[in-house]
Computed example of a mutant assay.
Amino acid sequence: MSRFIESILIPTDGSDGALAGARRGIALASRIDADVHVLSIVESRLQASDIDELDLPSFEENAEEAVEEIARLATDHDEEIDVTTTVRTGTPFQSIREYASRREIDIIVMGTKGRTGLDRVLLGSVTENVLRTARIPVLAVPPSADDPSVTDVPFDRLLLPTDGSDGAAIATEWGIEIASRLESSIHALYSIDTSPIDDERASNDLLEFMEQRGEKAIDAVREHGEDAGVSVSGSVVTGAPVREIPSYATENDVDLIVMGTHGRTGIGQWFLGSVTENVVRQADVPVFCVPVSAEHP
Rank of each mutant, 00 (worst) to 15 (best):
N129E: 13
I176Y: 06
K113F: 01
L160Y: 08
L54T: 06
E64T: 12
N278H: 14
M259D: 02
S191W: 01
L139S: 01
V138T: 06
D82T: 15
E173F: 09
G260Q: 03
T75M: 10
D205H: 13
V258R: 01
G164A: 05
G175M: 04
V42S: 08
G114H: 00
V292R: 10
E251I: 08
G234I: 00
R281W: 00
E223S: 14
I32M: 08
D106M: 08
N252Q: 13
V280M: 04
S203V: 11
G263F: 04
G111V: 01
L256I: 01
V236F: 07
V67R: 04
Q212K: 15
L206T: 11
I105K: 00
P196H: 08
Q94G: 12
T12Q: 02
L139M: 13
L9P: 01
I186H: 02
L139Q: 04
T112H: 00
P57G: 07
F271A: 12
I170N: 05
E128R: 05
T172G: 03
H77M: 07
I96N: 00
I257V: 14
D13H: 10
R213S: 15
R120S: 14
V130L: 01
A283G: 03
E53Y: 13
P196M: 12
Q47G: 14
G167C: 07
V42C: 02
T89F: 12
V38N: 04
P241R: 08
